[in-house]
Simulated assay, not measured.
Amino acid sequence: MTKQIQDQLNRKLYLKNTPKRIVSLVPSQTELLVDLGLETSIVGVTKFCVHPIHLKKSKTIVGGTKHINIDKIQSLNPDIILCNKEENTKEIVEACQKICSTHVSDIFNIEDSLQLISQYGSLFDKKEEALKIVNKIQKEADDFKTFIQKKPILKVVYFIWKNPWMVAANSTFINYVLGLNNFENVYETKTRYPEIELNNSTIYKDVDVVLLSSEPFPFKNLHKKELQTFYPNATIELVDGEMFSWYGSRLTKVFTYFKNLRLNLEAFQAL
């Protein structure tokens, strides 16, 4: 009997059997597959699929998230290919569809993430495992909401790149996560990941916190001093970019991280 599945772009997929050979082109979704107990079904991943770290040694690497080796993917004879609207290009999705069923996620908030986890539960016959992850995320999110509602709103800039300087703005999962943390994104009036100018005429004295992401640009301590000139009154913090931009089962860990981040910021600002 053919199973009909709808992805998060409302595209219909028709599957005769539960997919057993999976190619994942999205690192956070690869991590989710493993946490659902599907590691043995994964046949292909990207070079950025680093969790768990041993996957890159045991699975075929088919490229990155923006550039793939379509012939290598086809040679793996997958039953399904997993993509994401932001991570992968339209051209990649179209090329993958010519090989086999291709599921595309589209994530803007936790509700979207929970829906994706549930979809994977149905798609791969892992409903019980998916429900456990969903319930844990919901509990962690509710606990964090109680914690953070008592905290003041802080004006924040979230950097993702240098040369040129780029920040996370509106219409991104990162911006949504900043809001969960009672962080007011200074660049919320812009969209996606705009380039910004930093020079002697752009001194932002009213910014409370500057967050430097570990990915995609690997910010280090030396960049904190460089940015302090432009944000003289801000606390500048290196943060784990995966916690702000990965979804799926990573959400079971993020709220403990966010709580500790807020407490560390409070301790630093009290000095």
Results as ranks from 00 to 15, higher is better:
Q4G: 10
D7P: 04
Q8R: 09
R11C: 09
K12R: 12
L13V: 09
L13I: 10
K16N: 15
T18G: 09
R21M: 04
I22S: 01
V26F: 02
S28M: 02
Q29D: 11
T30E: 00
L33M: 10
L33A: 03
V34G: 07
I42N: 01
V45W: 00
V45M: 00
S58L: 12
K59T: 02
K59W: 01
V62K: 04
H67R: 14
N69F: 04
I70N: 07
K72T: 08
Q74D: 14
S75R: 11
S75C: 07
L76A: 05
L76K: 03
L76F: 03
P78H: 08
D79Q: 09
I81H: 04
L82Y: 02
L82K: 07
N84V: 05
K85Y: 11
N88T: 05
T89C: 01
A95G: 02
A95P: 02
A95T: 10
Q97W: 09
K98D: 08
C100V: 11
H103V: 13
D106L: 12
F108K: 12
I110C: 07
D112K: 09
L114N: 01
I117E: 04
S118G: 12
Q119W: 10
Q119N: 15
S122Q: 15
L123G: 03
F124H: 04
K126G: 03
E128R: 13
A130L: 05
A130F: 00
A130C: 06
I133A: 06
I133W: 03
K136L: 12
I137T: 01
I137S: 03
K139M: 12
K145L: 13
K150I: 09
K151E: 12
I160V: 09
W161T: 02
W165A: 07
V167L: 02
A169E: 01
A169Q: 01
N170W: 00
N170G: 08
T172E: 01
F173Y: 15
V177D: 00
V177H: 06
L180S: 06
K190Q: 15
R192W: 13
E195H: 11
E195G: 03
I196D: 00
N199S: 13
Y204D: 12
K205L: 13
K205A: 14
D206E: 15
D206R: 12
V207R: 05
D208A: 10
D208Q: 09
V209K: 06
V210E: 02
L212W: 00
S214Q: 07
S214R: 10
P216R: 08
F219E: 02
F219M: 08
H223N: 14
E226Y: 11
L227I: 08
F230K: 08
F230A: 06
F230C: 07
Y231V: 06
P232Q: 11
A234M: 10
E237Q: 15
G241Y: 02
S245I: 01
W246L: 01
R250A: 01
T252K: 14
K253H: 13
V254K: 03
F258H: 06
R262D: 03
N264L: 09
N264P: 05
N264R: 13
L265G: 00
E266Q: 13
A267G: 09
A267I: 11
Q269V: 11
A270Q: 14
L271W: 13
